[in-house]
Design a protein around this nucleic acid. Structure first.
Length: 480
DNA sequence: TGAAATGTTGGGGCG
DNA sequence: ACGCCCCAACATTTC
């Protein structure tokens, strides 16, 4: 039998625009497909619960795509470098291909895997696939990484555009190596009891096909209004592609070129899609940050924040997590997250500011909660976002930039539709009071069936006071 | 990818 | 007619 080529899938769970798969196919041998659930190497940053649910669907879709081409997706569990090397040697692979990894332990895994494969005399090759440009490519003239987004995006735009996406390789034929394999079920990625994924199933289609549907829908209209609509969580103004980008059921290159090509086809300029593309650049910036500052998920990049007087308040943290803070916009966001595994980005900033400034709870707590509950949990995006909102990142909002949850709500959810949807106990309140029910006249509350402290909580902190306390804590940090 | 505090300006009321 | 005050609207500064 001919020596097969092994393709090791990671966060690139697709067949289209997959450079490593393309290169594997070019070897001209049958391809063995492998996925390894590695809960060890990443330490506490292994897949979170909601991501696991999405992962299960994406693996199922990938497995049937592999099966449709005559193969079987081998599923294993354990240390990725050990398993990949073991499987490669068991099937007597001539070469192993995978999409390059950029997180700290992914890079370690790659190193160890290369060594192991080298010992077996098996060729190892990783290719780009999950980012538009290599993190080493977009750096300052002196070789230092960019620390601020704007110059980074300028340098990004100055590059030659990324290559056009690759189609699914036409010669693609998988083979079934006949190895023992876990099943999707035995990997226990989905919740059993309680089954908290009901809301997620209603919203997400975790497959390449699901990603393409979202992309098509977005390009058919919302993308042209994105610049104006993206901040309004009650409107369908965003693409919702984030979980697909996080799991690789679509490639950023596919998204980039689809947007650009549509603009050209409709006689519009690149500027028409730039506000959207810019979000892909933020993603690249986050990964550049993580690549060059691997402590990003765990430690504040501004060292002085190591001594910030954070508050340890488990009760407040629980209230925030469960959407019981008494601030409707915050609670709406946290409940959307809990139910669907996703939250609109504007609301992420609001709840993030609330946790770190109003409650003064360490940003890492928010980061962990998001990691566990987001279907789009992305190590770099999540870590950079939390450092940004807490004010301890390198290109972060200054600490004193504190969101006012009431003003933000009035500005971005003017009719209260978003709050009504996720906080139904306030649904009958008139718009004038929906974002600050504690100010509503007793009669209005009564008519809306709201009993503060019973049917909906009173605010767990007073924003005015909390803001002042946060500023005082920050001043102490600066002077201390 | 804020908000609040403070400063400035200019129109209108009024003695 | 003039100067003064008030204050809304806007701009700037500060947190």
């Amino acid at each position: 039998m001919v020596s097969p080529t092994l393709i090791w899938f990671t966060r690139d769970l697709r067949l289209a625009d997959h450079p490593a798969l393309d290169a594997a196919v070019r070897m001209g041998a049958p391809v063995v497909a492998l996925f390894v659930l590695d809960d060890v190497s990443a330490g506490c940053w292994g897949y979170g619960s909601a991501s696991r649910w999405f992962l299960a669907g994406a693996l199922e879709a990938l497995a049937s795509a592999v099966a449709a081409r005559g193969g079987r997706l081998v599923l294993r569990r354990g240390r990725a470098d050990e398993i990949v090397a073991e499987v490669a040697s068991r099937v007597r692979a001539r070469a192993v291909f995978w999409s390059r990894l950029y997180d700290p332990w992914g890079r370690q895994i790659e190193q160890r895997l290369r060594k192991r494969l080298g010992d077996f005399g098996i060729a190892a090759q990783s290719l780009p696939g999950t980012l538009l440009f290599e993190p080493t490519q977009i750096v300052q003239a002196d070789g230092e990484p960019y620390r601020v987004f704007t110059p980074f995006s300028r340098a990004w735009l100055a590059q030659e555009p990324p290559q056009a996406p690759l189609p699914v390789p036409s010669e693609l034929v998988f083979c079934d190596p006949g190895l023992e394999s876990e099943t999707i079920a035995s990997l226990a990625l989905r919740p059993t009891k309680p089954d908290w994924a009901v809301g997620m199933r209603a919203v997400w289609e975790p497959s390449e096909q699901g990603a393409e549907k979202l992309l098509a829908r977005f390009l058919d209209g919302p993308i042209w209004r994105y610049r104006y609509e993206r901040d309004f969580p009650a409107r369908c103004g965003v693409s919702r592609l984030s979980p697909h980008l996080a799991h690789g059921t679509i490639s950023p290159r596919r998204v980039y070129w689809a947007a650009r090509a549509r603009a050209e086809a409709e006689g519009r300029g690149f500027e028409a899609v730039w506000p959207f593309i810019r979000q892909l650049v933020w993603r690249e910036f986050a990964w550049s940050n993580l690549y060059h500052f691997p402590q990003l998920p765990d430690e504040p990049l501004r060292a002085e924040f190591a001594h910030f007087p954070w508050s340890v308040d488990t009760k407040a943290l629980r209230a925030w997590q469960k959407g019981r803070t008494g601030y409707p916009i915050v609670d709406a966001g946290m409940r959307e997250l809990w139910t669907t595994g996703w939250m609109h980005n504007r609301v992420r900033m609001i709840v993030g500011s609330f946790l770190t400034k109003d409650l003064r709870i360490p940003w890492q707590e928010g980061e962990r909660w998001f990691w566990d509950t987001l279907v789009d949990a992305d190590l770099a995006n999540n870590a950079m976002g939390w450092q940004w909102v807490a004010g301890c990142g390198i290109d972060a909002a200054p600490y004193f930039r504190i969101f006012n949850p009431i003003l933000q709500a009035k500005k971005f959810d003017p009719d209260g539709d978003y709050v009504r949807r996720w906080v139904p106990e306030l649904a009958r309140l008139p718009s004038a009071w929906i974002h600050e029910p504690w100010r509503a006249p007793p009669l209005v509350l009564e008519e809306a069936g709201v009993r503060l402290g019973e049917t909906y909580p009173l605010p767990i902190v007073d924003h005015e006071q909390a803001r002042k306390a946060a500023l005082a804590a920050f001043a102490a940090l600066r002077n201390g």
